[in-house]
Design a protein around this nucleic acid. Structure first.
Length: 125
DNA sequence: TTTCTAACA
DNA sequence: TGTTAGCA
């Protein structure tokens, strides 16, 4: 299929698809004349790239993960990478939870110091 | 109409 | 990334 259809199927812009090829994230598809012809595997890789992008994975990182072994995608490597991403996300979640508690402590400290906010303390001078 | 390359009010 | 120009 041509790039227009791939764009619709993956939700990626035609521009982005060509860019990923230029960056080496996908291998240059065969040409039918001067038009790029994509395969189902290309769609799958492109979908992966689309997902990873939303997950905050940089294109540079992806390039090291999507490796073509004799023209074939090493899905097992991608799978291992995905586990790493998941583990990192879990660690991030822990530090965020810790920060949430710290912020709540600050809020609590402020509340404790402003008990009389609604009725300003009377000066005792 | 769609795709291609190259380039940027 | 978008978008536009000028082709095929």
């Amino acid at each position: 299929m041509f790039i227009g259809e791939v764009s619709k199927k993956t939700g990626l812009s035609v521009r982005a698809i060509r860019l990923y090829e230029e960056k080496g994230l996908i291998k240059p598809p065969k040409r039918q004349g001067r038009y790029r012809v994509y395969t189902q595997v290309d769609i799958e890789v492109l979908n992966l790239i689309s997902e990873a992008k939303d997950l905050g994975v940089t294109l540079a990182t992806l390039k090291n993960v999507i490796i073509y072994e004799s023209g074939e995608v090493d899905w097992e490597r991608i799978r291992r990478f995905l586990f790493e991403v998941r583990d990192q996300l879990k660690r991030d979640m822990q530090t965020i939870q810790i920060r949430i508690r710290r912020v709540e402590r600050c809020i609590g400290a402020i509340d404790d110091c402003q008990v009389g906010l609604d009725s300003p303390p009377k000066g005792r001078d």
